[in-house]
Design a binder for these strands. Structure first.
Lengths: 228, 228
DNA sequence: CGACCATTTGATATGGATCAAGCGATGTGG
DNA sequence: CCACATCGCTTGATCCATATCAAATGGTCG
């Protein structure tokens, strides 16, 4: 009934699921998050952490991008969020992960011992506030996700594109780091519906699609009207 | 295209939108949340706070129940959460509300100045941790909501019933404080689909419906299998 | 009793899923 | 360098779960 959409399973295990290597960074003074961090590269589709594992680390995207997801028993996959350069992830409040995380493309991830942060937070109110702020931002994002999931396919795709645009450096063109299947699993649609909706937008001159991973905005106004 | 589901608009304004009265509670020593609170009664469907208002207060349900919701420009309403006796709400991280809140039924709400808590938190790490814990619980709940919204109607309704059961004191029967329209707007379904799904469950002897607001479990096992 | 809701039930429509095939880019081996 | 497998994406045809539209039922209160 539902497609098994876990790309991972099509990929030879030892090649994809391991980080490429480890580069220790040590004690940085640049910012609070950087305490005792190590920058670790992950290959495309490599697992960063798994559902139900202990949340031993916090993560910050140095470059590349990351998806978090859950797979239901019947194989349906829901992507919880995409994290781009600069985003922090790996928090879900508790001390167990409730999502799994994978590299969307090859990426560099700053990995910080959670304990280091949490014990620091019990002394330093600024750290405590930072933890709270990150959690609150995550909550906000998740609430927006809920609002997205009750909308029509057009509204979801338009919302997604505008969202990615808002988070990316360039202005009138987005580079999508993830394949269509990831977008579909984030939006609660099928890959076919995502594709069709994009060509629909292209046909009505709202966007151009120079390549599958590049979306250029032609009429952002019209897209925004779809967003609500 | 979409039904206007804002019950509020059908109700004479001055009668429904005001609290019934105010009873000051003063400085309690029972728990951290109770600092400088006042218990305020709200009538059924009365607004507790509005979308985009300053989040000046925090709220705790003393008795009754509360819904938070957003209304899209075209009238679609999404209910974000139901809060039952003992639950804290009115947090969404930032200092503006992103949802509105209404009394589902007549209820008593403990209202606490947010500033009192936040300034307290900047001195007291336990308070700070409590704020974080509440936000994290809210995040967890919202993530579960996302997972619910990608499922089939049967799975959503089954999940909702089991969820309400887990939160209610009684064991093999739930008293639903909210009308079908609220359930529909929480689950991202129509009222007709909710109703049909319930009778379907009744016909397959999973539940009994002695009255519209009472659901008795006959085969919880089978319901759980639908939940995933 | 009769008005008013909330809920259920019935008939039909439809948006998006499913099933299936085609297409274009990338890479690989002969 | 080209034939050809592979993969991600698009396009087409059909189906189905849920929405929509409409009406009946039931419960509550003046």
């Amino acid at each position: 009934m539902f497609i098994q959409t876990v790309a991972k399973q099509k990929i030879p295990y030892p090649m994809m699921l391991r980080p490429i290597g480890v580069r220790t960074v040590g004690h940085s003074t640049k910012g609070a998050v950087e305490l005792f961090g190590a920058t670790v590269p992950f290959r495309r589709n490599a697992e960063i952490y798994g559902d139900k594992e202990d949340a031993e680390y916090l993560y910050k995207v140095v470059s590349g991008s990351v998806r978090t997801y859950k797979v239901l028993t019947d194989g349906r996959r829901q992507i919880g969020a995409f994290y781009l350069t600069g985003d922090v992830f790996g928090f879900e409040g508790g001390d167990k992960h409730t999502f799994s995380a994978e590299a969307v493309a090859n990426c560099l991830i700053l990995v910080i011992k959670r304990r280091a942060i949490v014990t620091q937070a019990s002394r330093d109110l600024n750290i405590a506030r930072m933890l709270w702020t990150i959690t609150a931002a995550e909550l906000q994002r998740t609430q927006d996700h809920v609002m997205l999931l009750i909308k029509t396919a057009q509204e979801r795709v338009a919302g997604f594109l505008l969202d990615m645009a808002a988070r990316s450096p360039t202005c009138d063109e987005v580079e999508l780091p993830m394949p269509r299947q990831d977008i579909a699993d984030y939006l609660g649609l099928t890959i076919e519906t995502v594709s069709r909706t994009l060509t629909q937008f292209e046909n009505s001159a709202m966007i151009a699609i120079p390549s599958a991973r590049r979306i250029a905005f032609r009429n952002r106004e019209a897209l925004s009207r779809l967003r609500f």
